[in-house]
Structures are given as C-alpha cells and as structure tokens.
C-alpha cells in the first residue's frame, strides 16, 4: 500500500459482511495525522462496522487497513498503547465507581494521564465515588470518553460520542476534541449531528449503504450544492418538480422525503417567485422553511432522503 507517509489511517477496498448482510461495501479512505475526520450517515449505514474494523476489533471480509503505519495483527498491543476508543455502546461494570474504572483503564497504558485529571476533563469530579449504576445516561457516556482519553492517545476513535449529551456537555466534548487537534492528535468520529461535523471535522465522509458517497471538507461539500441557503416546502396537492430549477436564484432542486428542497443564492430572491409559481398551479403551501445550507442538505441532494427522521 503506497499511501501518505503521514497517514494516521489508510483504508483500501474495505468490505465487511455479516452473513448475508453487507455492512461495508468497499471503502477507501486516508486520514492524515492531526486531522479530525468525521463519518456521517443514517442508521445502519455501516459507520460503526467500518470504525470497528479500523479499531482492529472486527476482521474485515476483504480489503486492507493500516493504522498509524501498521496493520492489525502484528504488534497489536503496541498499537493499542497509542489508540483511545469509545464504542457506540459499552456498559461498564455497575458496581464500580467512576474513579475505580478510570484507574483500571489507566493501568493498561504506559503513559496514562492521572485518572483524577481525566475525570475532571469530562466533568465527573462530583461523581468520582458514585457507582456506575447510579449515573445518568449522559454521565456514563462521559465516563466512556474518560476511558478513551486516559491513555493519552495519538489516535482517538469516538463512535457517536455526543448522542444523549445535553448541550453543555456536548460543547464541553467539542472543546476536548479541539484540544486534541491542537496537540496534533488524530480524531475519527461518527455522528448524526451536522453542526457538530461542520464545526469539528476537517474532512467528512458521508456514508450510505456501506459506501462513501461524498468526501471532502464540510465547506467544499456544502459548496457543491451551489447555493448558500436552502428553502424547503411542501404543498397540497403535491406539485411536480418541473420549472422549480428555473426559478430565480435556484441552483438545485431536489426531493427530501415528502418535501421539495431548493438550494438558492438568497431566500428573498427566490421565495416570492416560488409563491407565484405555486399559485399558478393551484397548490397551497402546507409548510415552508428556510435555513443555511448544511451537510444535511448535501446528504439530501445525494440520496433524496433525510439523514435523521427528526431532522
């Protein structure tokens, strides 16, 4: 495998089957050292599967993976000294305290950070002596992150680290990740939150049905939409897409579930013309929303589906 000298992760032709289910269907990726790389995609896209292969926890069905310059298999323990992992779900022992668990994880690493410091980093000082079973869901999540950080990793994998966190904890985690970036560490994370990916990730890969369908910096991917703003609407009765992309300022028109989604230069330049257009076809607006173009819209434009049901 040629690849970059400075690659933290190199993946070529990665395929993973579970029996008949094709979870990952041919992925190629390079993640540079010091980069924060995001995997985005809907439920079941294959993000967790791909990440667990990278973490050396699942054997690939086909393809090659190199992490920090080595393949999994030889010298696995030495590699693990440099990698921190938070799985999508782990239930740590119920009847051990936060402090005890972080101490156990610290004991595995040659250059561990002091457990108390890591516990403070994730904001669990007050819960240091509480049993895991008495923690809230978000507090458990933060404990899992403390266990991922305690080995002072060069490469950190976080699988949906902010799912279930309140806004303050989410921002605190963003700061932790930004701190890792500042110290030249590599972070790979999966998420459903677009604003999170846009803010944290240097590059993102959008994954659907086990394949990477778009790859690049968030700005470049959004730029491909052509417009700065997005207008979404639905009508009764439904209208066809004919003529939508001919409206002033419309760069791209597409279906997003039961709505139409228009990438536009400016909202005020397009909406009046859109209203005229609909009136001319006898369709009444049942919903109209506008927002800044985001990675969500990139996914919609590529697949015609929304990324999250609640989005």
């Amino acid at each position: 495998m040629g690849g970059l000298v400075d690659a933290a992760i190199e993946v070529r032709g990665l395929v993973k089957h579970y029996g008949k289910v094709v979870a990952v269907n041919g992925i190629d990726l390079d993640v540079a050292r010091g980069e924060c790389f995001g995997l985005l995609g809907p439920n079941g896209a294959g993000k967790t599967t791909a990440v667990e292969v990278l973490e050396g926890l699942l054997p690939p069905t086909a393809g090659e993976v190199r992490v920090l310059g080595s393949a999994w298999g030889q010298g696995g323990r030495r590699l693990r000294q440099r990698i921190g992992i938070a799985l999508q779900e782990t239930h740590l022992a119920d009847r051990l305290t936060v402090g005890e668990i972080v101490r156990i994880f610290a004991s595995f690493y040659d250059h561990a950070r002091p457990p108390g410091e890591v516990i403070a980093t994730v904001g669990l000082e007050e819960k240091r002596d509480a049993w895991v079973m008495k923690l809230s869901g978000g507090q458990r999540q933060r404990l899992a992150i403390a266990c991922a950080l305690v080995g002072e990793p060069d490469l950190l994998f976080l699988d949906e680290p902010t799912t279930g966190l309140d806004p303050a904890s989410r921002r605190a985690l963003w700061e932790i990740i930004e701190g890792m970036k500042r110290r030249g560490r590599t972070v790979v994370l999966t998420t459903h939150y677009m604003e999170e990916a846009e803010r944290l990730c240097d590059r993102v890969a959008i994954v659907d049905h086990g394949k990477v369908i778009a790859l690049g910096t968030p700005a470049a991917l959004i730029g491909r939409l052509g417009g700065e703003q997005v207008v979404e609407f639905s009508t009764a009765p439904d209208v066809s897409g004919d003529g939508l992309d001919a409206l002033p300022g419309v760069r791209r028109a597409g279906r997003a579930g039961d709505r139409w989604s228009l990438a536009v230069d400016t909202v005020h330049g397009t909406v009046p013309a859109l209203l005229d257009h609909l009136r001319g076809r006898g369709a009444a607006l049942t919903a109209l929303a506008t927002h800044q173009a985001s990675l969500e819209d990139v996914f919609v434009s590529l697949t015609g589906r929304t990324l999250r049901d609640d989005a």
Partner: peptide, 17 residues
C-alpha cells in the same frame, strides 16, 4: 455478563494483556 455488555470488547480495545 461482561460480554453481553460489550465490556469484553472494550477491554480488548485496550493494551490489556
């Protein structure tokens, strides 16, 4: 119980012997 909770998986993801 540890396997069911994915705790075993989490442990082999560390350099633990």
């Amino acid at each position: 119980e540890a396997r069911k909770r994915k705790l075993l998986k989490r442990l082999v993801a560390t350099p633990m012997r």
